[in-house]
Design a binder for these strands. Structure first.
Lengths: 345, 345
DNA sequence: CTGAAAGCGCTTACAG
DNA sequence: CTGAAAGCGCTTACAG
């Protein structure tokens, strides 16, 4: 009986959340003082702040971020992701959340899958009053850009894209990536390279292709070809490679739109078509995902400067949050060639 | 000049968020009516609701979820992740967010890394008034469990663990996984298997080990050994394998605590130690990550029933959200042996 | 720097 | 079913 009562009181004690009012009472100050004490930018004297903190600590007070967000910043940053299958994005997501948390904000993760309207997704994030929004997407459909522009919330697109200039976008130089891949293959002595494209409509893919072919031609290579690859996935790379070698013109090297496709392609070459890599066919990817340096793949690739790209994205986003008049800008970072074992020495 | 003014007005129009009050005015009803119209469970007549919706649509009104959350549900579900390096977790995160969104809620993603206090992280999520919390973690430190218990918010641990019963937890039967791995290796004719353990303190690892050894002994196998593996990562599996073969007792098969370790281990065997897999040494993992079925690894493994585990986690979480008196329970799902090419036929 | 008071946008007893 | 009013927990001009 007494046990029961005690249980109930414990439960009630758990349920009741302590508020500014109670802290104010306990500290013998106004609620404004409590509010200010928990707001780093507010003007409040040190003694007062400490008095409040002491009372707050003894009551185990935690500010309610929702209530705070309704008048002030929500401390929420939206992250919109579309390509949840590509392992490339796991470390990226990891770093984004870490950086956001480092700035005392938190991540609202929105997963936009195929059958979801991207415009609706953007609007939805806005219902949470997010302070800013990060969009990671290999594809960058115009409706998405439009949706971002119509919001007055800062948006940064962490893209593989670059043509857009009405919204802030961070990407690596994909034309350069194409150049580098061409050099890598030509330098290694390959003569008939093919580009295996990624999903249609991704300008990153187009830029890589453009850079690749431009450099090939520049260096006098004539026998190149471009083939469709499908989505950014192991299976797509695998299947595309099989298709390539049914053509009459067989390439002696493949440049894939990204690493995970390249891994699939390498396996098709080695385990299905019986080629040796790099002796018979050379392979280059883009990204430098973790798997690329495994002993099984040991993939030559063009590394995107992920850390810098993320850092720039976060910096730009928070600058936009602080200063809403900052014009959108386009940040393009250089990539880096990483020669491993999938190309001849 | 006129341009300037127009720009300003557009900007103002963007900034002003339309509220219940304006919708109420436009529709000629009370704010209560507007609120009810947007609340599926509220009792309101169809005509009234439609009148409100019409006005809301014409004003492009979107409810402010933060304001709503302060009195009612926040529609926010926290997801706490620790193992952001393991590709195993990308599809899991993907499915969780999808399921949460399907229920008209959204995911607050918290990344708990090494130097972050897990207790602090849990408390922090609570500041957002999340309706519920999902924790995915290979390790399950007691402080975490305690932190969860002290909150009155529903928590589900998506674990590889099972011993705990003071909080709802969903996992697969890791002892069974160990049994299956033992059977797989013994059935294939291996005689001296070793278990390569995962991070210490992960009961999943211990359970797998226990199940593995129990079955080996049961079937009369004496020459087994257990070695430390380190963290769940490619490199850890690679290094551990190198160490194993420096011992005087060389195993002829390795059961790794998870797939990504097994991939690293296979590469060490093939590319560093010169063994053939599966002829010289057999390899089995746990998880069935996407990479496991690549042609390069073609890894025999014990598959965790991820989809079911996620579905059960989400179902359990929302049941707890609906009924706060539901006692915690432990849901353990069976796993499945997947024989591929890393074990002899 | 500090406090009293109004307000943020929404919800929810309370009457009718 | 509907509306007027109080309230959620916090912030922020406004005075002092």
């Amino acid at each position: 009986m007494s046990k029961q009562i005690q249980d109930e009181s414990t439960q009630i004690q758990k349920k009741r959340k302590v508020t500014v009012v109670e802290v104010a009472e306990a500290a013998g100050v106004s609620v404004s003082a409590v509010s200010r004490a928990f707001n780093p930018e507010a003007s409040i004297s040190l003694p007062l702040r400490e008095k409040v903190f002491k009372a707050a600590a003894s009551l185990n007070y935690k500010p309610n971020r929702l209530a705070r967000g309704i008048k002030s910043r929500s401390s929420l940053v939206g992250i919109l992701m579309t390509d949840f299958n590509n392992p490339f994005y796991l470390p990226i997501l990891s770093r984004f959340t870490t950086e956001i948390q480092r700035r005392n904000c938190h991540s609202l993760l929105i997963h936009v899958d195929g059958d979801m309207d991207i415009q609706a997704a953007v609007e939805l994030v806005m219902e949470y009053n997010v302070d800013g929004l990060i969009i990671t997407s290999a594809t960058l459909p115009q409706p998405l850009v439009d949706a971002c522009r119509s919001q007055n919330t800062p948006v940064v697109i962490f893209g593989r894209d670059s043509s857009e200039n009405s919204v802030t976008i961070v990407s690596c130089d994909n034309v350069l990536a194409g150049n580098m891949a061409a050099d890598m293959l030509l330098d290694a002595g390959y003569l008939k390279p093919a580009f295996v494209a990624g999903p249609i409509g991704t300008s990153a893919t187009l830029d890589r292709q453009r850079g690749f072919i431009a450099r090939l031609m520049e260096r006098g290579c004539q026998e190149w070809q471009v083939v469709e690859g499908g989505e950014f996935s192991y299976d797509a790379g695998f299947d595309a490679t099989l298709r390539v070698f049914q053509h009459t013109e067989k390439p002696d090297a493949l440049f894939f739109a990204d690493d995970i496709m390249a891994c699939g392609g390498m396996d098709a070459l080695r385990y299905e078509l019986g080629f040796r890599v790099p002796e018979d066919v050379g392979v280059v990817g883009v990204d430098d995902i973790r798997l690329a340096k495994s002993r099984s793949y040991n993939l030559s690739t063009i590394r995107q400067p992920n850390e810098q790209m993320i850092q720039s994205s976060i910096d730009a986003l928070f600058e936009h949050i602080s200063d809403s008049n900052l014009p959108p800008r386009s940040i393009t970072l250089p990539c880096e060639a990483v020669v491993r074992g999938s190309t001849k020495k």
